[in-house]
């Protein structure tokens, strides 16, 4: 199970980075979303996807699920959700003001 999840995470990372390197704003945002999914999946995989009892204090339990990565992922998902929505609004404003969604045309060093 861990191996499948790791491969899936790596596919998400590679597609994410491919999209991140594109010129269109929206594709870049899709890239960051994919990378964040990959990172979250990776976090879950790293603690081993164990089955068994819930992590409660009960006698006679040898295998139980590790609760910490799930708590970490939940936090990370909320954060990346917030940042992505902000990034979408920012991209829209950037597009309306600069009249372009092409990163190639958003270079330059005029700071007004």
């Amino acid at each position: 199970m861990e191996i499948i999840l790791t491969v899936l995470a790596s596919i998400l990372f590679s597609t994410g980075i491919y999209n991140l390197l594109q010129k269109q704003l929206l594709r870049i945002i899709v890239g960051t979303v994919l990378i964040s999914h990959g990172a979250h999946l990776f976090l879950l995989t790293m603690s081993q996807v164990k089955r068994g009892a819930p992590p409660l204090l009960v006698d006679d339990v040898s295998s139980y699920t590790d609760p910490l990565p799930q708590a970490l992922i939940l936090t990370a998902i909320v954060i990346s959700f917030g940042v992505t929505s902000f990034l979408l609004v920012l991209a829209y404003r950037t597009y309306t003001l600069n009249k372009t969604d092409n990163m190639e045309e958003m270079r330059g060093s005029d700071y007004d």
């Binding site: 991140l20 704003l25 960051t32 990959g38 990172a39 990565p69 920012l90 950037t94």
Partner: peptide, 27 residues
């Protein structure tokens, strides 16, 4: 806005790497 977009992207990418390295360290 043009420069802010780049700033947000760089920080977002490094934050994702932060999660990955936390995952490694936890493992």
């Amino acid at each position: 806005l043009r420069e802010s977009f780049k700033y947000v992207l760089f920080n977002l990418f490094s934050s994702m790497l932060f999660i990955v390295s936390v995952a490694y360290i936890y493992a």
